[in-house]
């Protein structure tokens, strides 16, 4: 008997196709494109702000273009997906043991969602009031 193990090739660029679990993972990873692009948008906002009122108001105008609105709407969807996927794994990364028992994962996730809701409401209220 001779040994001749057969090695199956793994596609380096298409391995995630046809596997719902891997596709969900890639969707999560792709959120970085939109988080990154939006960070650049914030950077541009700061640049225009530093250049004075006119430049900044032109920037706000550009945001209101159809392309700007579509970009932001898509970014909002990906940002929400990032938030949900990020919070849902927090009990894995940071389990909390009190006495003998571990705090149920749902409680840790719930606390993050509650904190998120609080931050969101706070920002909305303060942003409106300023």
């Amino acid at each position: 008997m001779s040994r001749r193990p057969y090695v199956r090739e793994v596609s380096k660029s298409r391995w995630f196709l046809g596997q719902p679990r891997y596709l969900r993972y890639m969707a999560r990873e792709l959120t970085c494109v939109f988080i990154g692009a939006y960070s650049v948008l914030l950077l541009v906002a700061l640049k225009r702000l530093s250049e004075g009122r006119e430049a900044y108001e032109a920037f706000l105008q550009a945001l209101a273009s159809p392309a700007g609105i579509v970009f932001q709407a898509v970014t909002l969807a990906f940002a929400l997906y990032h938030t949900v996927t990020w919070f849902n794994v927090t009990p894995k990364a940071m389990p909390i043991q009190i006495g003998e028992a571990f705090v149920p994962g749902g409680v840790i996730i719930g606390a993050h969602y509650a904190g998120w809701a609080a931050v969101t409401v706070l920002v909305l209220v303060l942003a409106e009031a300023l």
């Binding site: 679990r21 891997y22 993972y25 794994v89 009990p91 894995k92 990364a93």
Partner: peptide, 19 residues
């Protein structure tokens, strides 16, 4: 996270790795 999803003994390797 696939490791933890397929574990037949409900071990959470993905959690261990992040920790």
């Amino acid at each position: 996270g696939a490791c933890s999803e397929v574990c037949p003994e409900h071990v959470d390797p993905a959690g261990a790795l992040q920790q």
